[in-house]
Design a protein around this nucleic acid. Structure first.
Lengths: 185, 185
DNA sequence: CGCTCATGTGTACGCTCGTACACATGACGG
DNA sequence: CCGTCATGTGTACGAGCGTACACATGAGCG
């Protein structure tokens, strides 16, 4: 905890740009893309509003960089989990974890990946992030399955987790695993 | 074509409320939930702005009624298709059609169902619509499959179609069908 | 025919937003 | 030690929004 800056302005603040991107991710997870504004990000990061336009050309750019960073961070965790997995079951488990983490945000109900999908529908930069993100789990599965199967397993996992999150009657992780095993048999 | 009203105000316009909801759906499909405003809906429906607040208490109410209407319309088409289906393959095909229609909006890329998921994350009324919507396809599949299988097939279809829509390298309908058949074997 | 009031309209208010931009400031080279 | 200028800040502007509400209007009744 080097920091407890709070009130006083910090004249020189290298890495502020990075902190702003992190703050943006917090806001997205908290309020959704629709509730993400320059002012809210600045408030969360405890910097003046002007700092936003100083560091970024536009709000879209902030969103794109935030999602990109999230994808990179998720990828790191994912690669660790996948590295630990030596068989198909382990790979499947890693992908389930990846999808689950991306679908279930901090405040109970939010769905970061789905926010990204919607935002990407109208923002080409985000579309590239989305596709890279999806490609990663497919690539990982292809270490253990043929391409067609990898694709289908990937889609199955996403569908199952998505339904699981949105349902009143959520599936348990065991049920998800069972469905995938059944598919692979 | 009874109507070409365009310019002149129509003093008495029964059914205008309905037309506004339809206009709202057009706007959602066109601009997304984020781009849906009172003014835009009024413009599309060619009515004055004041008409919106006269007919609806809030924009949220418009969104909820619009999504509800869409779900009802989709359900009608779905029930027809499903009525024509007498076997498992037919039921699966009907669900694929339902999901596809809800995922692929008019302007190429839009994803009505995903817009709904995001909106529902912060709007309890929409959450109910979402769940009813999902329940419908599951119920339909349960005519032909046991509940656990129905749930899994439903999720598989949604995942496959979602990935198919978002991918640069979309799966063909045949590939989707093949994946589901493989699952059912 | 004329009165009445549900129905429908136009406008304006208060707010938040993205963005621009003139100004402050302090690190650093000379 | 001082001048300079990249770095960082505060504020204001114009646009677009949801919503409220005073007013217009014409259908239907007596």
């Amino acid at each position: 905890m080097t920091a407890e800056p709070s009130r006083r302005a910090r004249r020189h603040d290298p890495g502020r740009r990075d902190r702003l991107i992190d703050a943006a991710l917090t806001v997205i997870a908290d309020k959704g893309v629709a509730g993400t504004t320059h002012r809210e990000i600045a408030r969360v990061a405890d910097v003046p509003l002007g700092s936003m336009t100083y560091h970024f050309d536009s709000l879209d750019q902030v969103l794109a960089e935030a999602f990109t960073r999230h994808a990179e961070q998720a990828a790191t965790v994912f690669d660790q989990r996948l590295g630990a997995a030596t068989d198909r079951a382990g790979a499947v488990e890693a992908v389930i974890g990846l999808v689950r983490d991306d679908l279930i945000g901090s405040p109970g109900d939010l769905i970061l990946a789905v926010e990204l999908y919607v935002a990407a529908a109208r923002n080409p930069a985000l579309k590239a992030v989305t596709q890279a993100w999806m490609q990663r789990s497919r690539d990982a599965l292809e270490r253990h399955f043929d391409p067609a199967t990898a694709r289908e397993v990937d889609a199955l996992i996403e569908g199952l987790v998505l339904h699981s999150v949105l349902s009143t009657d959520p599936m348990t992780p065991d049920q998800i695993r069972h469905a995938i095993e059944r598919y692979l048999r």
